[in-house]
Structure formats: structure tokens, C-alpha cells
Nucleic acid binder design. Sequence first.
DNA 1: CAGGATGTTGGGTC
DNA 2: CGACCCAACATCCT
Length: 262
Amino acid sequence: MPELPDVEGFRRVLAQHATGQRIERVTAPAPEVVRNTSPQALGRAVHHRHFAEPARHGKWLFAPVDDGDGPIVVMHFAMSGRLTWEPGQTRRDQHDRVVFVCAGGELRFNQMRKFGGVWLAADLAERDVITGPLGPDALGVDREAFHAGLDGRRGMIKSALMDQEVLAGLGNLTADEVLWHACVHPRAHVNALDVDTRDRVHEAIGHVLAESVRHGRVPVLDGWLTGSRDDDEPTCPRCGTPLEHGTVSSRTTYWCPQCQRL
DNA sequence: CAGGATGTTGGGTC
DNA sequence: CGACCCAACATCCT
């Protein structure tokens, strides 16, 4: 599930509940989900330190400890991850993979499928190696940076929007939603899109992400593609034309053949 | 039961 | 070298 809006929601969970908390210990029911070290070493690195203000870039979540000059806990949720805060000691979920036990509660990295995971970075440089190169965060990306990211691309616009090195944060769901709002066909080639069209895509990114972040996820809304795509006979919320679907960049893709012409 | 699923990576191709 | 495509990853659901 997690795309940028979901991860932003997890960042808020962390900011509201975990920031300022002292970490008593780390326990990892699924130790292999701690990717670049052992759960024991992770536990030693953060032992009795306090969660500082968390940050997010694209779909990555960063939880530094001790005012930001300590180590950084790096998290990626892939397709099925969540981050929850449980005050006190309630029963754990079957899919709680890594748990940060604090004095006032537990921060739990929960994940059904074990893609993503939790990393330990000693500093910002290590953090950047873990994430690999990322384009500008899609939330609030400015027009110039967006155009620069598309510059030189020749492939399909949906592929470019989902390429984290071009723009960090959009996934399959948000990319479809953005292109539907902008009236651009997902298979349109980037080099065939004029400046006005690219501007429309940029505006749609701003609109879709702002609204989604407000909801803490990509909302299932009337008047949005998400509100229709899972219907039995999905139709375009704008014009009523039956939606088409197919595969773009190996992902299931929905579009309106009337509003989104090639 | 086979096929898919909202993400990323690595390998191969053009 | 850059851009692109696709299979693989782990697990559950339809």
C-alpha cells in the first residue's frame, strides 16, 4: 500500500508519539527485516537514545535519534508495510517485524511481505548510500525541478513518474491518479509532451498529493480514479466513458480513453 | 489453484 | 553510458 501519502502518515505517527521518547530496547521477531546489521547491533546503537524529529523523502522514512547527530533509523515499507504506535504493552501483531520499545509505548514496523525493511545509518552519508539516488520529493516539487527531471526522457510518462531517481514518492496508484487528473495517457512518451502538458502533470501532482496527504493515504473519492477503478464496470468519473486498463511498466494501469488520448 | 498485488533491485537489451 | 524493460523477491488474498 505505502506510497508517499502513506509514508507521510507514518512520519506523523512517529512525530506525534515517538519523538522525545527514550528507546529502551529493540526487538525483532523477524531479524532478517533489519537489513544492514543485526537487531542486536541496531539495539546497541539506539539504546537509551531519544527519537528526534523524523523526516521523509519519497517513500523513505528517516528516524534520527538524539537531535539528529546520532544514528539514523531508515525505513522502507515496500508494498505492505505500516508503522504503528501502541501505548503501553498491548499484544503484538503477527506481522510486527521490528519493535522499538520505549518507556511510554512501542513503535512497531509491521509488514506482511518482507520486502522493504529497517536499516541503520551512522550518518547522513550512510543514509544516502542506503536509499540510493533519489529525485526531488514529489510533495511540493517545484516546476523547474519537475521539468528538469523529465528532460531527456523518451519513454512512457508513467514510467518516468514512477522512477524514484526522477521524482521520489509516486507509485502505481498515484501515478495513475495524477495522469487522469492531468488528462495525459499513461503510455504517452515524455518527449512527445509539450510544456503546457508537462505543466498540467506538475499541477496534478501537487493537487493529488496535497489531498492524499490530508487523508493520510490515496483517498477513495468520488471524482477520483481511485473511486472508480475497483468497481465492477469502472467508468470515468469525469465523462462516464468505461475505463480501460492494461500494463504499463509491468504494473496494472487504468485510464480513460476519452479524457486521456494518446 | 493460479495469478496478482499500491515497491525496489539487478541483469540484460537497445 | 543512459534509458528502458522484466523477472525476482515473500506472503496473502481472490
